[in-house]
């Protein structure tokens, strides 16, 4: 569901990962409004009432698990229209399954190589934002 002016929030504690994700997002949706949360606490507070179209969650946050954030948001009655992509280093099939079960629309593993990384972010932003 494409908004006129999509709002995307990255829950991401790595500065360089966020920087690259922002770069990739700008390439495909230059008009998008991009926000960033670094901690679990930060994310829960910000995401509840914002008019978001896409949330990109990292699994490993300094103060908690991204999946917990997701469950929390869904419990708070977050709107159905908000898409959630879990974007994580883990290649563990359990993590993928856990994310989908917790209500994520997609699970994407973070590629190590930058070109591939940029392409992956571009793809899911285009798809869900």
């Amino acid at each position: 569901m494409a908004h006129a002016k999509p709002m995307i929030c990255f829950v991401e504690d790595s500065d360089i990962d966020f920087e690259m994700a922002l770069l990739a997002t700008r390439r495909v949706r230059p008009d998008a409004e991009v926000r960033r949360c670094v901690t679990f606490h930060d994310a829960v507070r910000t995401l509840g009432d914002a008019d978001l179209s896409l949330i990109v969650l990292d699994m490993n946050l300094p103060d908690g698990n991204g999946l917990e954030v997701l469950r929390h948001l869904r419990n708070l009655g977050m709107r159905e229209e908000v898409s959630v992509v879990v974007f994580s280093t883990s290649a563990n099939p359990n993590d993928r399954e856990g994310a989908l079960q917790a209500g994520a629309n997609e699970y994407v593993q973070k590629p190590s190589r930058t070109e591939v990384f940029l392409e992956a972010v571009g793809t899911f932003v285009e798809r869900w934002a």
């Binding site: 790595s14 360089i16 990962d17 920087e19 690259m20 280093t89 883990s90 290649a91 973070k110 590629p111 190590s112 190589r113 930058t114 070109e115 990384f117």
Partner: peptide, 17 residues
């Protein structure tokens, strides 16, 4: 191997930048 991948990715990103 899992934990090594994160700094490695950072290295790649910085190299790209």
């Amino acid at each position: 191997s899992h934990d090594l991948r994160e700094p490695l990715r950072g290295l790649n990103h910085n190299l790209y930048m």
